[in-house]
Computed example of a mutant assay.
Amino acid sequence: MGSRSARPPAPEVEPAGDRPDVILVVDDDEDIARFVEFNLRLHGFEVLHAGDGQEALDMIEQHRPDLAVVDLMMPRIDGLELTRRLRANPITSALPVIMLTAKGMTVDKVHGLSAGADDYLVKPFDTAELVARVSSTLRRNKEFREVSPLTGLPGNSRIRREISDRVRSGVDYAVGYIDIDRFKSVNDRYGFVRGDEFISALARSLHRAVVAIGLPPAFLGHVGGDDFVIVCAPEQIRPLTSRSVVDFEKSADTLYDPTDRERGFVELKDRRGNIRRAALVTLSIGVSLSDARKRFTDPLDAIAVASEMKTVAKSQPGSYVAVDRRRADGV
């Protein structure tokens, strides 16, 4: 399957270990918030407080906390909606969330976990349980949900676990391996800061495509650099990649200087001082399918085939999606 672009061919972040973990407490009850804050500070955490979900979103954007303790019932944006929004944003999708509920009913726990909460606490709770839940959730997050500091997306270990989960469930799945063509030309022309903007733009485009295709939920991970991985149902791969290509190329155009954008290429000097042209960036996407034709049981095999197909895609002009159609016998 190919998806060609209309583009013609060309003629410092502070280390987490250097500071205490930052906990955001989101609760409109001042007494509860002060109780939680006091006890967390006693155990060495730095604590921020937001009175509702809207204020929390603003604070998260500014301060990037390590974990959020979120009350279920709040005005404006409640805990469930806040958690859903955090999970829907690639920058905050991996932020661990502990949900607080005063009811203790099973349905509230289920709703909280379904929205994406990592754990829950039932009010009233004691200090030891609060600190234990926060500490264990942070530890799990650091061990199992490592994320890219640039995009906030989960990395290699989480990607492998996602594929392993699908293998165990027995469902058909597709793995898409994506990178930016001629990304080096962006770094060489504009520098690494602008290059990071292209990577962030791709993360946002992929995320918007994932949201748009709906259920079953697709998974998005960031391998590193300009390499991303999508894991989804086989029938989702075509609409997902098509949307991503169109969205990303539109976003990338805005990141070029006007002169380069209008002429459709950038000029670069090689080591000998010669001028060469590099076309505007496009996407190469390789796809492996685990279905009746070929069943992958090892996540690394699925990723390796997707990477192989990405190489095939790079041999084609413009943005291109190459899907492995071979059967298990190699035919």
Rank of each mutant, 00 (worst) to 15 (best):
R204I: 11
G112V: 01
E37M: 13
P90T: 03
S205Q: 07
P149L: 09
G264W: 10
L72D: 00
L220Q: 08
R194A: 13
P75G: 12
P239E: 10
M309A: 07
G2E: 10
E249T: 02
L130D: 04
L95A: 13
D301L: 13
A306H: 01
A218N: 08
G17V: 15
F228R: 13
Q54M: 15
L153A: 06
A68V: 07
R7D: 01
S185M: 13
S319H: 04
L113D: 00
S164I: 07
V331R: 12
T106F: 03
R41W: 00
I178T: 07
A203G: 10
V131K: 09
R261D: 00
D196Y: 03
E37W: 05
I285C: 08
P154Y: 07
M309Y: 02
Y177E: 00
L80T: 00
A88E: 01
P149C: 07
V171S: 15
L80I: 14
I163W: 07
A201H: 06
A33F: 07
E146I: 13
V266P: 08
D31L: 12
Y120V: 00
S135R: 15
A117T: 02
T151Q: 03
G264C: 14
G2L: 15
F144S: 12
T254R: 14
D227F: 09
I303A: 04
G195I: 14
H222A: 06
A233Q: 12
V36W: 08
A328L: 12
S136L: 13
K184P: 07
L255V: 13
E197C: 04
S205W: 05
G44N: 01
A16V: 14
R204Y: 04
S288R: 10
A102M: 05
D58K: 14
R139M: 05
V231C: 13
A313L: 10
E162Y: 11
S242F: 13
